[in-house]
Nucleic acid binder design. Structure first.
Lengths: 166, 166
DNA sequence: ACGCTGACTTTGGCTAGGCATAGCCAGGAG
DNA sequence: CTCCTGGCTATGCCTAGCCAAAGTCAGCGT
């Protein structure tokens, strides 16, 4: 017997692909390196264009382009603000939807810490209350911790009928 | 005090960027669309080259290239297998490290379901035992559910001393 | 021994996306 | 009213990545 993991997830039937797959759709929004890194900066607290662009290390043009896409996708919001003695500026803040991408970002962080060796520094996410390291863990709405092979993936047609006039 | 969510994460000091950031390093491995989609296929149970490539919808060349990278990064392993009456083949199986990317993939899935509208079908990950929907949730090693502002992000130098002869 | 099939590899052409540099614009400071 | 600064926008070049199509290769079946 070689290894235990067969198909990991329980996938009884074929799932939709292409633009019908929510994973693919999400990747259309945050599927590029600059986009994810901008998100990282936003989670680190950056709000101003310069800080975001600088932190990611891309040119202004790319930063502007990606930020525009993230705003269009509803991940970030552009809001006016004013520092005392300064003119009105705009800052980029995470929306509710943006905040919900935190598990993904921290998942990448945790994986990189564990498996992408070579960095001379390590970044740790820990629980402010107890100091223990934090990671995304699979849980169901009932509050059970879910193992990989207990995850059942199913597809369903959305809104069968009711295509009434708006 | 304008909005409630200020910096979401608690980040007391600057974090390393570029290739010193584990998020960035992880993106170097799975930071492209085809790579993530190949991973999706692997989680769905695909193991053969053709199935993986077909499921992602890219050309053979791209699939081969990305698979090679994923193998090199230790996410997939190439193993020989033999179906009865068939010649020896190789299949791609998720390694331990590969399996640990599941929270990221399911995070993308969950987010897409909730925020990337437009698909006519929905994919749901549910708990096989109780049927409730499954999502990645932030938890610390002590077992506490961690809220966003209770996540403390800190950097540390790896291997403090031992900077002996190079 | 030959052919077929699955699994790649190679080649050539094309497009998206990146960078650098420079230019533009708004608006408080002076 | 002009200057200055942060925040973009525009231009030109250059590379990475993609696709399609064709070629290669291993080895079981006949």
């Amino acid at each position: 017997m070689p290894v235990q993991h067969s198909a990991s997830l329980a996938v009884p039937a074929a799932q939709p692909r292409g633009d019908q797959c929510p994973i693919d759709r999400t990747l259309g929004v945050v599927g590029s390196r600059p986009a994810l890194l901008l998100l990282r900066e936003a989670f680190y607290g950056a709000r101003r264009f310069d800080d975001l662009a600088r932190g990611v290390g891309v040119s202004d043009a790319v930063a502007a382009q990606r930020l525009k896409e993230l705003v269009a996708a509803g991940v970030l919001e552009k809001e006016p603000y004013q520092e005392p003695g300064q003119r009105t500026r705009h800052e980029y803040v995470l929306t509710e939807a943006g905040h919900e991408l935190l598990p993904v970002v921290l998942g990448l962080l945790a994986w990189g810490e564990r498996h992408a060796a070579g960095a001379r520094t390590s970044i740790t996410a820990s629980h402010a209350d107890c100091g223990a390291p934090v990671e995304p863990v699979l849980m169901c709405a009932e509050g059970h911790r879910v193992a990989e092979d207990d995850v059942l993936v199913t597809a369903a047609r959305r809104q069968p009928a009711r295509q009434s006039a708006r």
